[in-house]
């Protein structure tokens, strides 16, 4: 464990909690892409199956349980409890265009052709594009609530910090996992446009509205 990975995990946790609290407190999931939340929940479920087979550390297991439960709770709030506030007309990204290629790729490019490893690879590839329905929805509505932009900021930051963690681990431990690194790069690059808008608008107290 190094400071960048810990900061990344904290940033990820903050993002997940911000979203859950935003929906719970405002009793509304306006502007939130339920499709992205379903993708994130499947990312955690497919990646953390080893929760029951391998014990790495209390930290590792508890974070996995928190991520899985929060993401499933968020999906529940969006599609059931606050369904009336779900903006389905703008959440129209065709997720099959993500899941099918990602599913195919995880069979073709992986470290080991075993079920657990293919599921882990699927999860890594899926996570790198899981935010697309959310970003697509914001481009369709042309704006985002400020709290939602904070959620996106921490979510984007987390994998960026993981990239630094992988540089650190390569330099000090000689460890690197090309699949995770390439997917992490794609994932972080997808946020670049948002990061630019976040820094130039939201941090200056303006509302995030598109086109810029």
């Amino acid at each position: 464990m190094n400071i960048f990975r810990l900061a990344g995990d904290v940033s990820h946790l903050v993002a997940i909690i911000i979203l859950l609290l935003k929906i719970w407190k405002t009793r509304s999931c306006a502007g939130i892409s339920g499709k992205s939340q379903i993708l994130f929940a499947s990312v955690f479920v497919t990646r953390y199956l080893d929760l029951f087979t391998i014990f790495i550390s209390l930290y590792n297991s508890s974070m996995k349980i928190i991520y899985i439960s929060c993401s499933i709770a968020t999906v529940y709030l969006v599609y059931f409890k606050f369904k009336a506030t779900y903006d389905g007309n703008h959440d129209t990204f065709r997720v099959e265009f993500l899941v099918v290629p990602v599913g195919g790729l995880s069979f073709l490019v992986n470290h080991d052709f075993s079920p657990m490893e293919i599921l882990w690879t699927f999860s890594i590839y899926l996570e790198s594009v899981a935010i697309l329905p959310q970003l697509f929805m914001i481009s369709k509505t042309g704006e985002a609530e400020t709290i939602t932009t904070h959620y996106l900021f921490f979510l984007g930051l987390y994998r960026g910090l993981y990239l630094i963690n992988w540089i650190w681990r390569y330099y000090f431990e000689g460890f690197f996992d090309l699949i995770a690194i390439v997917a992490g790069l794609v994932q972080t690059v997808l946020y670049c446009d948002f990061f630019y808008l976040y820094v130039t608008k939201v941090l200056k107290g303006k509302k995030l509205s598109l086109p810029a």
């Binding site: 990820h12 590792n60 974070m63 991520y67 470290h111 996992d177």
Partner: peptide, 10 residues
């Protein structure tokens, strides 16, 4: 290879 063993990251 060793990658499948070291899934110590979240």
């Amino acid at each position: 290879d060793d990658k499948t063993a070291t899934k110590d990251e979240l």
